[in-house]
Simulated assay, not measured.
Amino acid sequence: MTLLSGAPNTRDLGEHVTARGERLATGRAYRADSLVRLTDDDIAVVESWGLAHVLDLRGGPEVATLGADRLPTGPVLRALSVYDEDLDIYALMTAAIGSGDPDRQAELLGDGRGEQLMVDMYRWFVTHPGARAQFGAALATLADPAGVPVLFHCTAGKDRTGWLAAVALTAVGVDREAVFADYLRTNTSADQSRALLEGLRVRGLVRDVGLFAPLIEAREAYLAAAFEEVDRGYPDFATFVTAGLGVEPAALRRNLLA
């Protein structure tokens, strides 16, 4: 069920159950895509959630281009930009489409370059101190009794939002299979992006829409790359959360489990 018509990739983390059979509390943490297109009805729904915080993981250029969040009064909006200009997927798509040149698009995204950029970005989420600091600040909000209810989002609700959700779910004890399933659910809300690309193809701006698929789809290999970096750099996931992100998993469990 779509919670917000203007942000179709919104869902409540409370639907999950840990490997030990503990259920996450509903109404504590929501993940979403951009809140720029929320309708008036959506605003009323968000208001009913009584959010304490909204965490915007988008980069400054995205906010400047796409616009600020539409929100009801009440929640504190925190800008926690997870952004690197060398890994700017939105800018890359804009440049490729804007060129209108099939050869340029193939040069930017062909021969596996799109997939490799995505894998590199997910590894960067784990290895870059600045990225870890922002994810850590977001996770600390989820672990703070005064921080919830909280909604966190980026542009598509896929990559930065997907990794933060995967970290939170894993830290409280949700098994890896369920974490990946939650991540891949984003593909059910990617139809709008696919329809947009098909429209661009019809208009002659894009010849091979498949070149853009790696950028708009959630793929298991991307999330796996982030988990691989955790395994490479830390003795276990709990240590990554504690030492890498500065949050105690026990605090997350106390705050997010029912």
Score class of each variant (00 low, 15 high):
residue 1 M to C: 14
residue 2 T to Q: 13
residue 3 L to S: 04
residue 4 L to Y: 03
residue 6 G to F: 02
residue 9 N to F: 04
residue 12 D to I: 09
residue 12 D to Y: 09
residue 13 L to N: 03
residue 13 L to V: 06
residue 14 G to R: 03
residue 18 T to V: 01
residue 23 R to S: 14
residue 25 A to E: 08
residue 27 G to C: 07
residue 27 G to Y: 04
residue 30 Y to N: 05
residue 35 L to I: 02
residue 37 R to E: 15
residue 38 L to I: 05
residue 39 T to N: 07
residue 39 T to I: 02
residue 39 T to Q: 08
residue 40 D to G: 14
residue 41 D to S: 12
residue 43 I to A: 12
residue 43 I to R: 09
residue 43 I to Y: 05
residue 47 E to Y: 11
residue 48 S to E: 06
residue 50 G to V: 06
residue 50 G to P: 04
residue 52 A to K: 15
residue 53 H to M: 03
residue 53 H to K: 11
residue 55 L to W: 06
residue 55 L to T: 04
residue 55 L to I: 11
residue 63 V to M: 10
residue 66 L to R: 13
residue 72 P to Y: 09
residue 73 T to C: 12
residue 75 P to L: 08
residue 77 L to R: 04
residue 83 Y to T: 03
residue 85 E to W: 10
residue 85 E to H: 12
residue 85 E to A: 12
residue 86 D to S: 14
residue 88 D to M: 06
residue 88 D to Y: 04
residue 88 D to L: 09
residue 88 D to R: 09
residue 98 G to P: 12
residue 101 D to F: 13
residue 105 Q to F: 14
residue 107 E to S: 13
residue 108 L to W: 13
residue 109 L to M: 08
residue 111 D to H: 14
residue 112 G to E: 13
residue 116 Q to N: 11
residue 117 L to V: 12
residue 118 M to A: 09
residue 120 D to K: 07
residue 122 Y to P: 00
residue 122 Y to A: 00
residue 123 R to C: 08
residue 123 R to T: 00
residue 123 R to D: 01
residue 124 W to N: 06
residue 124 W to T: 07
residue 124 W to M: 09
residue 125 F to T: 02
residue 131 A to N: 12
residue 131 A to F: 02
residue 135 F to N: 06
residue 135 F to G: 06
residue 135 F to A: 01
residue 136 G to D: 01
residue 136 G to C: 12
residue 138 A to G: 15
residue 138 A to M: 06
residue 138 A to W: 00
residue 139 L to S: 03
residue 139 L to P: 03
residue 140 A to T: 01
residue 141 T to G: 08
residue 147 G to I: 08
residue 148 V to Q: 05
residue 150 V to A: 14
residue 150 V to R: 05
residue 150 V to M: 11
residue 151 L to H: 04
residue 152 F to G: 07
residue 152 F to A: 06
residue 154 C to K: 04
residue 155 T to S: 13
residue 156 A to G: 06
residue 157 G to L: 03
residue 158 K to Y: 02
residue 168 A to E: 09
residue 168 A to K: 05
residue 169 L to Q: 05
residue 169 L to P: 00
residue 170 T to D: 04
residue 171 A to W: 00
residue 172 V to M: 00
residue 173 G to N: 08
residue 175 D to G: 12
residue 176 R to E: 15
residue 176 R to G: 01
residue 178 A to G: 05
residue 178 A to N: 05
residue 179 V to D: 03
residue 183 Y to M: 00
residue 185 R to I: 09
residue 186 T to S: 12
residue 192 Q to K: 13
residue 193 S to L: 14
residue 196 L to W: 15
residue 197 L to H: 08
residue 197 L to W: 12
residue 198 E to N: 14
residue 200 L to T: 05
residue 203 R to N: 07
residue 204 G to T: 01
residue 205 L to G: 01
residue 207 R to H: 12
residue 208 D to Q: 10
residue 210 G to S: 05
residue 210 G to T: 11
residue 213 A to F: 13
residue 220 E to C: 09
residue 220 E to I: 10
residue 222 Y to N: 15
residue 222 Y to A: 02
residue 223 L to S: 04
residue 225 A to W: 03
residue 225 A to P: 02
residue 226 A to L: 02
residue 233 G to D: 07
residue 233 G to L: 10
residue 234 Y to S: 15
residue 234 Y to W: 14
residue 236 D to V: 10
residue 237 F to W: 06
residue 238 A to Y: 01
residue 242 T to G: 10
residue 243 A to M: 11
residue 245 L to M: 05
residue 246 G to C: 07
residue 248 E to A: 13
residue 250 A to V: 09
residue 251 A to I: 02
residue 251 A to S: 10
residue 256 L to C: 02
residue 257 L to N: 02
residue 258 A to I: 10
residue 258 A to P: 10
